[in-house]
Amino acid sequence: MASENLIEIKDLNFSYDTRAILKGINMTMQRGKVVAIMGGSGSGKTTLLRLIGGALPPTSGYVKFDGDVVHELNRDALFKLRRKMGMLFQFGALFTDLSVFDNVAFQMREHTNLPESMIRDLVLMKLHAVGLRGAHHLMPNELSGGMARRVALARSIALDPMLIMYDEPFTGLDPISLSVIGNLIRRLTDALGMTSIVVTHDVQESLKIVDYVYFVADGVIAAEGTPQQVRDSVAPFVHQFVHGEEDGPVPFHYPAQQYRKDLNLESEVV
């Protein structure tokens, strides 16, 4: 193996038009680990995953995946690289014109020449892992939000990729499914030697399964550490996040002018 680190991110900057979203991110992710990325809503976590997948080009800095700098690859090489990645989209992104079965089978049919009987077995295995083997004939519009997410999860692990990026896998799941999925992520990582990146807001659940945590705030890594370090941390930022307090260094509000001014209360001094 080339190096112990599957992903290295160095001084990564990214902006949409002129608005800087990421300002100098540095991360390393070792093979076979589950890494969590946490941060407030709108802090750029999904954007970071897109940069890793090469769907967006960085403004400066780079993402290195398995030895290759992602944004320097040409299209064919990038597509080749993406076959080693799976991604669970935040909103599932199931193909609405295909059944659950065909969704999970999609990549197998596109990228392999496996016989249909073997595809069938593999698909049912993947669906079984997320508890939806019986739903294989349904169409995506017949699924509940949580079921759709689990199908999307099954689809993202279809080809047993080296890296899976989960964008908020826990939202919309009931407590039972939640811990099942959490354990599934852990088990897949251990059993198949995959690496997982989990973007999540669910601090308690994720701390149980991950090996390392990054906190993103204001476009930079605000804190990082192992789950134990995180729990014990006295840094106000981490403390606020782990315990879900509204007041603290993490602003709940998107930057805006003063509330009173927005509501036109400024001049009406009574």
Partner: peptide, 17 residues
């Protein structure tokens, strides 16, 4: 609609054009 629901990006991320 496929674009709006990220199905096209998802496909791209699966290395399918």
């Amino acid at each position: 609609l496929m674009k709006a629901t990220e199905q096209l990006s998802a496909m791209g991320m699966m290395a399918v054009d």
